[in-house]
Design a binder for these strands. Structure first.
Lengths: 230, 230
DNA sequence: ATCATGTTCCATAGATTAGTGGAATATATT
DNA sequence: AATATATTCCACTAATCTATGGAACATGAT
């Protein structure tokens, strides 16, 4: 009798494929690595600055980065003594967005966190990317990027000015009181833009957050600028 | 001095969010669970039939399903004695597609597997979903769904006829020799449609595969039918 | 009530993983 | 050559995960 089943030899090709997908998923299955990915989504970085930004030990960071690299999520290049990592793919930003979507829609605890620490802090609906692009064309807004200077330099929204949260109070005088101010940062669950609009509104500015953050703007194919324009 | 850093109390909200995302990713980080998801992507199923389809022990399957449920990827409902699971979200299909994309583009081993077991077996470019929809309208194709009857009944492409691979040889007479035959199955890394077009071409039919499979067709928002039309 | 069916729960053993401290390595700089 | 800087490698511990067999539980049929 002819049979389509295989003996007790090697696993079927379908399973080999699933094994590969699981390798990618395993790399995503750890909060610290997800954190490293969200930091890399802002722009490339060396191991040391990554470790510092993530609050991790150097060796530990190095290990995590290797795991991410083996999973095809990041690539590295050597720049003199240092090793610079970057996302290998916009797909990494997309997969994070989908994990977020699944968690938001189906995990009770996620709703609680989103409500308590985020929505409650800024109940106003953020501006959508499309809407912001329209307003940029009409020049009716001021956009502030509240991420650290390093990340701003690696890439930002066209025309945005960099005002890291720590400097915000100090630089209020330079912000316009007539135009609406739109703030953005690393992503939808980054508190920096929340803090910024809170501060600004308290001081009488008209401020609102952008939907998501820089990586999502870029991944959506919207225009970006790089460099350290003041 | 006022500081924005927190003492040694609870982790920052951003980390709570990453913890949730990691929960979802951890559920995806195991080949057997990915297999269960691809089976559920064909339609809802009871624990027992899932275990059988996946080749897993019952208790083990039950445990995996709970993990998937806690991660918000599937939901269950009770139907008399049996418990029926289904995907909670089309997002599950999307996340599998992205993991696949990342693996394909960045993992050397994935390319080897894809080449050796899939591309080599059918070097012809598959028909895209858009192209197939056009041809359906013109009625210039016969579509065969080579998945098991159970999965066909749960949902299939409009007008497709169900010819499970084991029955293909037996039912060749009923297939047209003038029209092109388009075969599809569970997804891009499911061998059933590869086997089918191979058999058909050997017998002189004009056969070609559809890009991806049923779950991707449905997730793309294309029309589907359900029920057991012959 | 009793039995059959389908699913979950529990304890356990083996494998994998995360974090740590420190040694080893590679590349500039002096 | 010697030193400083940036990263990786290694050994080890604690925690988590997977699969297994079997007991327990719920539901419907007899």
């Amino acid at each position: 009798m002819i049979t389509t089943s295989r003996g007790n030899a090697s696993p079927p090709p379908e399973h080999l494929v699933l094994e590969q997908l699981a390798t990618v998923a395993r790399a995503l299955a750890q909060p610290h690595r997800l954190l490293l990915l969200t930091i890399l989504a802002q722009g490339e970085r060396s191991v040391e600055t990554l470790a510092e930004a993530a609050g991790l030990k150097l060796g530990n960071t190095s290990q995590h980065l290797h795991r991410l690299q083996r999973a095809g999520l990041v690539t590295s290049r050597k720049d003199a003594q240092r090793v610079v990592y970057q996302l290998s793919d916009e797909a990494a930003v997309v997969v994070l967005a989908i994990l977020r979507q699944i968690a938001e829609r189906n995990l009770a605890q996620m709703s609680v966190i989103a409500q308590k620490y985020f929505h409650e802090r800024d109940p106003l609906e953020p501006v959508s990317r499309e809407e912001l692009r329209r307003r940029i064309r009409k020049d009716t807004v001021t956009i502030i990027d509240v991420r650290p200077a390093e990340e701003f330099a690696a890439g930002h929204l066209p025309g945005a000015i960099n005002v890291p949260t720590e400097e915000l109070e100090r630089r209020l005088r330079k912000l316009p009181r007539d135009k609406e101010i739109i703030a953005y940062c690393r992503g939808p669950y980054c508190l920096m833009s929340y803090e910024a609009v809170e501060t600004l509104r308290r001081r009488g500015f008209k401020a609102i957050r952008l939907q998501d953050g820089y990586p999502e703007w870029k991944a959506a194919g919207f225009p970006v600028e790089a460099g350290n324009a003041p």
